[in-house]
């Protein structure tokens, strides 16, 4: 029973991290390791600075 609750909670956290965008850095790391194993990926701090700079230049609408 405790195992089921633990798994459900883990699943929820995984989902919530995805929806809020927290897992973006991990997705970036996975991509870099797969496609560009030769180059050093950005650190988490660098990545988020870069990410917000990208969002500055590519605004996303929010619906009414």
């Amino acid at each position: 029973m405790a195992d089921v609750v633990k798994r459900a909670w883990g699943g929820f956290l995984w989902w919530a991290r995805g929806v809020t965008g927290e897992s973006k850095y991990q997705a970036y790391l996975d991509h870099e390791r797969r496609v560009h194993p030769d180059r050093e990926p950005m650190t988490e701090r660098q990545f988020w600075r870069d990410e917000y700079a990208r969002q500055n230049a590519n605004p996303e609408g929010r619906c009414c």
Binding site: W15, N58, C63, C64
Partner: peptide, 27 residues
């Protein structure tokens, strides 16, 4: 076009939440 940034293959359940949060608002 995968680039690890905006072109990222995202799990459908996560993307559903993401898309819903973008379309639903006060309207």
């Amino acid at each position: 076009l995968a680039n690890g940034r905006d072109y990222v293959a995202t799990d459908r359940r996560v993307l559903f939440g993401h898309h819903f949060a973008a379309i639903a608002g006060a309207g």
